[in-house]
């Protein structure tokens, strides 16, 4: 296998991962275009995390193919790590370091020059309005600020693709939307975004989404297409119909 020649940000073909007798990810095939905001949805335990670990070069697939930023996930996982950014709700920044120190640390990890780190630090501080708190420990920041900073840090080395794993979980409704504006900004600048979320309204913000059920991709398309195909009024409804059809009759949370 060689690096794929095309410019798709992510391409998989029958990607599979088993753990003993259990198939966590079962022949998934999809691709993500450059600059696309791709929502990677699924029920708890559907295989999203396992798939993301394969795509970020952290876990070797059992079978199938995948290229991320043109690099083969089997043989070029170190190259993948240089070309991607990653953030999750659980781990993103070091609470005991200041805002500036966190940015500098990640800049160093990604081999940025001193000048690059300085310029990008100022850009982030001014964009997020954090200049006055640049010397505060990150642990003292409100969750929403921390998450916006974490996204900016994940984008610090200007990766081609950024993976966001439940980045807005527990974040207030205003900050959640500011966070999505940062996502749009990054996508308009050409960064590809793959994002997971349990907020179904956020699924509507994506260009395309996939919904995983029991290791497989059960639906793939733009939010409008998926709603039209399912005859549903919201992605929440599409999701429930796919994952638990017998529940779909009952009235769920509105929207």
């Amino acid at each position: 296998m060689t690096s794929s020649g095309d410019d798709r940000a992510i391409r998989t073909n029958g990607l599979t991962r088993t753990f003993g007798a259990f198939t966590a990810v079962d022949h998934i095939t999809f691709d993500v275009k450059p600059g696309e905001v791709f929502g990677f949805l699924g029920a708890n335990g559907a295989g999203k995390t396992t798939a993301i670990r394969m795509l970020t070069g952290l876990l070797t697939p059992s079978s199938g193919e995948a290229w991320v930023a043109g690099h083969d996930v089997y043989r070029e996982s170190e190259l993948i790590k240089r070309d991607i950014g990653y953030m999750s709700q659980r781990f993103s920044l070091y609470d005991d370091l200041t805002v500036r120190e966190n940015i500098r640390l990640y800049g160093g990890i990604y081999d940025l020059t001193r000048d690059q780190i300085r310029d990008r630090t100022e850009r982030i501080l001014s964009r997020l309005g954090l200049s006055d708190t640049a010397h505060d420990a990150v642990g003292a920041l409100p969750l929403g600020w921390k998450q916006k900073l974490a996204l900016s840090v994940a984008l610090l080395h200007e990766p081609r693709i950024v993976f966001l794993d439940e980045p807005t979980s527990g974040v207030d409704p205003i900050t959640r939307r500011q966070f999505w504006e940062l996502i749009y900004e990054a996508a308009h600048a050409g960064t590809t975004v793959l994002v997971t979320t349990h907020y179904m309204d956020e699924a509507e913000y994506c260009d395309r989404i996939s919904i995983m059920v029991a290791g497989r991709i059960a639906a793939l398309g733009s939010p409008a297409e998926l709603k039209r195909d399912a005859g549903a009024s919201s992605i929440d409804e599409v999701f429930v119909r796919l994952v638990r059809p017998e529940l779909a009759g009952g009235g769920g949370p509105a929207q």
Partner: peptide, 11 residues
């Protein structure tokens, strides 16, 4: 229901 998927939340 925090961190729980939309279907389990509904249940």
């Amino acid at each position: 229901t925090t961190g729980v998927d939309a279907v389990s939340r509904r249940e």
